[in-house]
Design a protein around this nucleic acid. Structure first.
Lengths: 247, 247
DNA sequence: GGCCCGGGTTGACTTGGATCAAACCGATAC
DNA sequence: GTATCGGTTTGATCCAAGTCAACCCGGGCC
């Protein structure tokens, strides 16, 4: 399998990073063609994950990080009493598994929200290569740091915002990420349930549903099940900025 | 100044990592004596930060990360409308500034909670050295990953826990960290105000205060202003585990 | 077609924590 | 000693979001 993958790379048929249209969003960002070729050798392996199946789960030994090629995932942590907290939704080009580096064991679950495919990046070899390739090292650090900044944003959301602000922030964030991938920033399909959105935003699913309905009534978005069309981007943004305390 | 610091190191009088009793908690963890000496060359510079003063602020150009030598800090993000979210409290041996790597600009404020001193670790040189010293690279990655895992814990707290659970989790976390530094895990002094605790936990200061009083009434802790004595560690832990939905 | 089933929506009611307000406490300044 | 001031505690009231429950909708299957 290793051999096959490498062979395909050599043929340039359709293999790893060098041919991937996500490379500007992913680990290869900022690398020269030559450097990407070296990364290719290491990322040869892919893995398909079916909808609702786990890429890894909390407690599993950490061996690799993963770049999402197609599809999307959620990550979550579970409390002993069964409470679940969704810590993030990841889409193509984003990296999964960074939580595992610290204890050499994964600390959360990563579950595919749809049939998906990831590139497997063996961690030991990544460290090795990033000692040789400065730009790779730098980009890897940026990816980790970006995750930290993102997490701080979620804390802000969970700690200081009201229900509708949270949902607005969530939609704006998705919109931005879809746009970065060349999709419409105004019209998209949610891959997660209301319950999962609620868990991520620290709300109950009923509250999420009500907020969606409210946005719809106010003409901010058109919601039909999981299909979302943003009608008034600025309206959503304003909701975020100066909804403040006493409206 | 650079020279002076290096000279002191050479004399072994009392300089950087090699002589620092925090090295097991900090960046030098896992390095050989020789490797620590190389790290020392780069960490020569120190900086004092007075209580209530900022080590860096959101938007400031990112140049270095910082290891706390003495004292403690809080980090926070501000929303345009003035709302503040404290994203963490850091104590000795912990690393500040990792948020700045992603955009080459700091994304939060770091403020000293008491007169403090940090070791300045110029980021470019750290990347350079960690390309040469495998164990340093590895430890640095672990530190970043640990921050990500910590952030997920805070999300859990903010998204899924009730007020008293949050405070219990907070106290237990402090207790653990004081213990790791050789201080009493049962008796300590809070460096932050009720308001700052509230911001961190997504609660108002009155709620924090009430929760403290409740814990005191139940004999779990003795609270006198900022002085805390934990009387029933297991009681606090239980509060966390199975306080579940319907008590 | 009709049935089932897993989401999703909507309504009525409850509640935990926010808000507002007053008093308290300990440290520093006069 | 008294006044001041930032931080903290405590009480009374309010409201945003949670809970419980009924119903709806669309897709898959018989």
């Amino acid at each position: 399998m290793q051999m096959k993958a490498t062979a395909v790379t050599a043929n340039g048929l359709k293999a790893a990073c060098s041919q991937c249209n996500l490379r500007e969003l992913c680990l290869p960002f900022g690398l020269t063609g030559e450097e990407i070729d070296r990364l290719d050798e290491l990322v040869a392996n892919r893995r398909k994950v079916q909808r609702q199946h786990q890429l890894y789960s909390a407690g599993a030994p950490f061996e690799a990080i993963y770049a999402i090629r197609t599809g999307s995932f959620k990550t979550d942590v579970l409390l002993e009493d069964g409470r679940e907290q969704v810590t993030g939704f990841q889409m193509t080009g984003e990296i999964l598994g960074l939580d595992g580096i610290s204890a050499e064991v994964h600390s959360c679950n990563a579950t595919a929200l749809e049939d998906s495919e990831v590139c497997v990046i063996p961690y030991g070899r990544l460290e090795q290569l990033s000692r040789q390739v400065e730009s790779l090292q730098h980009q890897f650090h940026k990816v980790m740091s970006r995750e930290i900044v993102r997490d701080h944003g979620v804390m802000m959301l969970l700690g200081s915002m009201r229900a509708e602000e949270r949902l607005a922030a969530f939609l704006l964030n998705l919109s931005k990420r879809f746009m970065a991938r060349g999709y419409s920033p105004a019209e998209f399909h949610l891959r997660m349930t209301r319950d999962e959105i609620g868990s991520y935003l620290g709300l109950k699913l009923e509250t999420v549903s009500r907020a969606f309905s409210k946005f719809q009534d106010e003409g901010l978005v058109a919601v039909h099940q999981k299909h979302i069309r943003i009608l008034d981007l600025d309206g959503l943004r304003q909701l975020l900025t100066h909804c403040a305390k006493h409206p």
